[in-house]
Structure formats: structure tokens, C-alpha cells
Design a protein around this nucleic acid. Structure first.
Length: 297
DNA sequence: CGGATTTGACCAGCGC
DNA sequence: GCGCTGGTCAAATCCG
């Protein structure tokens, strides 16, 4: 599957049926809100009208996202059941792979949302017997981040602090892969790998291993009222994390071991995170709320 | 000067 | 066993 298409869904869904989208470009939402603040009285009605339109557009976009999510989950489940069936018919072909690399690649490529590998034990007893070690595998997730194609740094701004400890050129991708450890290491075991997508050089693929055992650094800043975290979460970054087999484009990447019921929850959490980090979304939200308030006055 | 980054060397897993 | 590959180490270097 070519994820370069869905990565752009980062609120560029173009609910194009809404002409409003053209009239009120997203970037201007913020502006319209601020101008609203400054000259409330004079343009109040006009601006609030635009805001309501914008709110409609955002709602439609939201709805569209929900639909896409649902569809994607359905596709995933279909694919998953197909693969399960296939593997039942060919029990000895797939899972004979050995320890480290295979198991890791199965984690990376097919563990949608990076959800725990702990459903593995429920998938095939046979496998769990063979590879009990996977039970303690750290949680692996993928994050796709769009950057400037000209930006040569392999930095995914996720708010955490990372220390780079290595870089390699891998066989399947001409772009170097950078290895990072959480700067809180060794107390925090989280590692991440960042590499440009083969398909789209402007997309960084960050693979996270493990979970942080400390609070998100930017959370403190948020609570203290600075906007730093927004800057850190560089605007167009998409942090949706459906590791969804993506780049390698073959269906065999889909891992039958996924605990599918967890998918939507994780997705929702990540989408929520993504949305709250999106200045446009926040601006639209603020605008909508203030518009309502103005309307009521 | 201390912490972060770079980069070549090294190690271990895997396939043949 | 050997070569290939990905991941990590650690000395050198950079930078604030």
C-alpha cells in the first residue's frame, strides 16, 4: 500500500464539496480569529459567519476522517482474516523464521499502531512455544512525518529529546537510517530509528521501540503556558501511527497476531494527539468556540 | 569543558 | 563456515 496518499490526509482531506474551503483557507483561520479579536464590533457578524462555515468544514473533515478510519479498519480486518486463513492452509511456510531480525521485521511491518506484541500468544500457540522471547519484546510503533524534501536532517520532532548513537545505510533504502536513544537513557529504554521513505523522500519514517517511562517533556511546557510544544510538533507532521504494512507494499506484511480491537482505540488516541498538536485545528476550535460565544452575546 | 553528534569498527543473526 | 546485513559501541570531533 502506498501510504504517501493517506499521509496527506493530514487534514488535507479536501472536503472539496465545500466551497468554503477555498474561500477560507486553513491558514487564515487563525488570522480570521485574531482579526476577530481586534475588531470584534465592526466585523463581528461577517467573521462569525466565516467561522461557522469553517466549523462546518472542520466537522465535515472530521466526519470524513472517521469514515476513512472505519474503512481502513475494515480493510485491515479483512486482510487480517484472509491472512489468517492463508496461514492456516500453509502452517509451515511463514512462521519458521528465526529470532531476531525476522521477529523484528514482523513487528515493524505488521504491527499496526505499534500495538503490543502481547496478543501474539493468543494467535498461535505453536509460535508462542517457539518464540517465547517475543513476549517481552518492547512495544514497537511507527510514525510517519512529513518534512521538507530538502531537509537533510533525520529529525522527527516528537517533543522528546533524543541522542543519536548511530547511522547506517541500509540495503533496501539509499537514505541513511539514524539510530536514537531517549536522552533519559538508560533509565528510559526507548529507542527510535528514523529513515526517509523510499517512495517519498519528504516523508520520514520513525520506528519507536519501547515506551517512555517518564513524562513527555513538552507537557510541562504546555502547562506552563508556552507554545513551545507546538513548535516542536512542527505543523505538517503526521503522527498517525498505523504501521500498517506500508512501505514494502506487500500484503504479507500484515501480522495476524494483532489484537484488532485495540486498533481503533490507539488510532483515536493518536489522532487526538495529532489534532491537538495541529495549530490549524486549535485555531479553528478556538474560533468556533469564540464564534459561538459571540453569537450568543 | 561538557554534552551531543559523527563515523568507522565491531558484533551477532541470518541465508547460502 | 563465510559473507552480508542491521544494530551498537566508542573514539574523535563538533559546538555552545
Amino acid at each position: 500500500m502506498d501510504y504517501s496518499s493517506w499521509i496527506n490526509t493530514s487534514l488535507d482531506l479536501n472536503i472539496n464539496s465545500h466551497s468554503v474551503h477555498e474561500q477560507v483557507p486553513k491558514k487564515e483561520v487563525e488570522n480570521s480569529f485574531f482579526s476577530l479579536e481586534m475588531k470584534k464590533s465592526s466585523v463581528k457578524e461577517e467573521s462569525s459567519g466565516a467561522i461557522v462555515e469553517e466549523l462546518k468544514r472542520v466537522s465535515a473533515e472530521n466526519k470524513k476522517l472517521t469514515e476513512m478510519l472505519t474503512e481502513m479498519c475494515e480493510n485491515y480486518n479483512t486482510l487480517r482474516s484472509n491472512l489468517m486463513e492463508y496461514m492456516r492452509k500453509n502452517p509451515d511456510k511463514e512462521l519458521s523464521s528465526s529470532k531476531k531480525r525476522k521477529s523484528e521485521s514482523s513487528n515493524n511491518n505488521s504491527n499496526p499502531m505499534g500495538v503490543n506484541g502481547n496478543s501474539e500468544s493468543s494467535s498461535t500457540d505453536e509460535e508462542s512455544c517457539k518464540k517465547p522471547k517475543e513476549e517481552i519484546k518492547p512495544k514497537v510503533s511507527r510514525v510517519f512525518a512529513r518534512t521538507e524534501a530538502s531537509d537533510t536532517s533525520l529529525i522527527v520532532k516528537d517533543g522528546y529529546q533524543w541522542r543519536k548513537y548511530g547511522q547506517k545505510v541500509t540495503r533496501d533504502n539509499p537514505s541513511p537510517r539514524a539510530y536514537f536513544k531517549c536522552s533519559f537513557a538508560p533509565s528510559c529504554p526507548v529507542k527510535k530509528k528514523v529513515q526517509r521513505s523510499v517512495d517519498d523522500q519528504s516523508v520520514l519514517v520513525a520506528t519507536y521501540e519501547g515506551e517512555h517511562n517518564h513524562p513527555h517533556p513538552s507537557q510541562m511546557e504546555v502547562t506552563t503556558g508556552t507554545n513551545r510544544s507546538m513548535a516542536l510538533a512542527s505543523a505538517p507532521t503526521v503522527t498517525l501511527d498505523w504501521s500498517k504494512s506500508k512501505s514494502t507494499t506487500d500484503s504479507k506484511n500484515v501480522n495476524p497476531k494483532i489484537d484488532s480491537p485495540q486498533v481503533p482505540q490507539i488510532l483515536v488516541e493518536q489522532m487526538a494527539t495529532s489534532l491537538t498538536k495541529d495549530p490549524n485545528f486549535r485555531a479553528a476550535l478556538v474560533a468556533a468556540i469564540s464564534g459561538k460565544m459571540l453569537h450568543n452575546n
